[in-house]
């Protein structure tokens, strides 16, 4: 499984430029899906049909979502010496960028530099630039153009139980979806696995995907923060503590029936879990929940340290718990009982 984590983590896909990561995921899921489509915004939507249609009624639709975009930067200006100015894509801190590299879709690499600063507190994006090794504007323009996006460079590290790399947010959840697609056998209802675009810009892809699918229930899988490193702000989620079942974040109060279904599935299958209340931040479930007339929705979170840096870290035991939990929840929802929700 770590090989696939590495492949997904290293894939290129800043928000709005998800073509490459979409191809990578598509090649992984083609064998499990009955139908695959890409919508107007670029969401990859994979339908898995039930073994048998429910007697006397059309199958209901279960939407499971992980976003495939990642944070990054976008080129805004190239000066006459060939230095590249940029704007952030998604929630980035300028301090995280110091000493880091970015890579563009075609493999062009850049390193971050700063103007002279009297105080490191003055570090702002507009004081920074990217040096792509060009000697003048023409040389730079031959490699990059205004509007081109780049992703952080962050090598994959296998630390044993834990792994680190860039874009674990949310490629680790893409892996959870792929594994659940492989394992879950929906009995009577359809499952739509959505690899969504532009989550980091405000849950944009999930919104149009959910409208198109018109699901009866929605589950997002995303990373959440952590509370278990030295002097960290109190937060009831630890690496290694199991799958996090979302109670609330800034985008969503989990539908009680969906949350309880997750808790019951974890208890019944002996899957380690922890309950999560995240004060800031949201997931695609927030967009799915408000689609059309409303969709009962919840989120399974993978605990992740150092989120939105090139060195995010997850625990493979937690990842396994999330895969098992999502599989169990999908099978329960897709059963004739509909998990008590459908």
């Amino acid at each position: 499984m770590k090989d696939l984590v590495k492949k997904l983590s290293q894939g290129f896909g800043p928000s709005g430029s998800e073509d490459q990561i979409r191809s990578i995921i598509r090649s992984e899921v083609e064998q499990y899906a009955d139908e695959i489509r890409v919508d107007a915004m670029g969401n990859l939507i994979c339908r898995v049909a039930p073994k048998a249609a429910a007697s006397g009624s059309a199958p209901k639709r279960i939407m499971v979502d992980a976003h495939m975009d990642e944070i990054g930067i976008v080129v805004s200006y190239i000066d006459d010496k060939g230095f590249v100015r940029f704007s952030p894509v998604g929630g980035l801190s300028p301090h995280v960028l110091l000493g880091q590299k970015v890579v563009f879709a075609d493999g062009t690499v850049g390193v971050f530099g700063t103007e002279k600063l009297d105080d490191i507190k003055d570090l702002k994006f507009d004081k920074m630039f990217i040096d792509i090794g060009a000697r003048d504007r023409a040389e730079a323009q031959a490699k990059v153009g205004i509007g081109d996006a780049a992703a952080m460079v962050g090598s994959f590290a296998d630390m044993g139980v834990r792994v680190s790399g860039k874009a674990m947010d949310d490629r680790i959840a893409c892996l959870v979806l792929i594994e659940a697609m492989r394992r879950a056998r929906p009995q009577v209802h359809e499952v739509y696995y959505v690899f969504a675009v532009q989550e980091e810009l405000g849950l944009r892809g999930a919104r149009t995907a959910a409208y198109g699918i018109n699901p009866d229930v929605g589950i997002a899988v995303d990373v959440t923060l952590w509370g278990d490193t030295p002097e960290h702000a109190p937060f009831n989620v630890s690496l290694g503590g199991g799958a996090a079942i979302k109670a609330k974040d800034a985008s969503l109060i989990a539908h009680p029936a969906v949350k309880n279904l997750m808790i019951d599935a974890a208890e019944k299958n002996g899957i380690p879990y922890q309950l999560e209340v995240l004060e800031r931040g949201g997931t695609d479930a927030g967009a799915i929940a408000l689609t059309r007339e409303g969709v009962p929705s919840g989120t399974i979170s993978v605990p992740c340290r150092y989120v939105h840096t090139p060195a995010e870290m997850v625990d493979m035991g937690d990842v396994d718990a999330c895969v098992r939990l999502l599989t169990a929840v999908v099978e329960e929802l897709a059963s004739p009982g509909g998990g008590g929700i459908l």
Binding site: A40, M41, N43, G145, T208, A209, Y211
Partner: peptide, 23 residues
């Protein structure tokens, strides 16, 4: 010219997410 900065919003922010998405 290509607009350099990415600040500000336009009606595209409402047209784009309409229903299943509009290019």
């Amino acid at each position: 010219q290509i607009k350099r900065t990415v600040t500000g919003g336009t009606d595209a922010g409402r047209i784009g997410p309409t229903e299943s998405g509009v290019p």
